[in-house]
Design a binder for these strands. Structure first.
Lengths: 133, 133
DNA sequence: TCATCTATGTTCTTTATGCATATAGTTAAT
DNA sequence: ATTAACTATATGCATAAAGAACATAGATGA
């Protein structure tokens, strides 16, 4: 119980709300890619290897294909096992544009909260460091 | 099915991942408050009345009390039904500080994604509007 | 041939949230 | 004075996103 509470602000407890999907759409907008290979590219968006759940990645890609945001084909002949390569669709590009708008709004909200928090904390900091001033 | 897809980028589908909790902590850091009254104050953080689920609000407050981020007492005597008034605890203040750090990181990620998207879109926009330049 | 690596996929579970509904006291209208 | 509407809090059920663990299978090298 105590340990649970200590972990409460841990990465496992603040999901990225489908942020992964948007990152994947953006990466696939640049160029086609396959599951395992996309993992490295996701580091750019702050997904550490240990943080990223591989099963989530594949499930997400399948779901995106199901929603016709991406299409895929099997790439054989290369080194190692064959890969399922994903490409973004026009549909997917439109979804990406929508998501970017949503993320802008979300960013504005977060900014607003942080600013209001800093207002609290700064005044507290001044009292602590400079007494009554 | 088609309608589902049309709604896919709707507000119902991008949850705020416990953003509500953080907003409540910040509001209660300012001053004690009760469920129904907090709804109005939440508008500051972009929660429209129709967007905010009342049951979620109350459930969240109870959970926060369970985790000892807030405490509550019944306020009687005022106009209307009695209210359960919540106050933030030291524990809650610490959690708030943690969440603000998480939100800063999340904001940085979102910023990064938006910037990369704008890079794509700007070049596309130039082609569309100014031809080959 | 056995282990390891690459690559993809499935099943089960937890968590956050929405929707619907319940409860109950308060105020206003008829 | 009885009914309706409002304020306020709370619970039960359903679903979607995500994690954990496990399953599959070909490729590569010792």
């Amino acid at each position: 119980m105590k340990e649970d509470h200590a972990l409460f602000c841990n990465s496992k407890h603040h999901k990225m709300e489908r942020f992964l999907e948007v990152c994947l759409l953006l990466l696939l907008h640049d160029e086609a890619g396959y599951g395992y290979g996309l993992i490295e590219q996701l580091a750019y968006f702050g997904f550490k290897e240990d943080e990223l759940n591989v099963s989530t990645l594949y499930r997400t890609l399948r779901k995106m294909e199901n929603d016709a945001w991406v299409t895929s084909y099997w790439e054989e002949g290369g080194p190692g096992p064959k890969r399922r390569v994903y490409m973004i669709t026009e549909n997917g590009k439109q979804e990406l544009a929508q998501w970017v708008m949503i993320l802008k709004a979300r960013k504005a909200r977060i900014t607003r909260l942080i600013e209001r928090y800093e207002d609290l904390d700064i005044s507290k900091g001044l009292e602590d460091e400079h007494g009554t001033i």
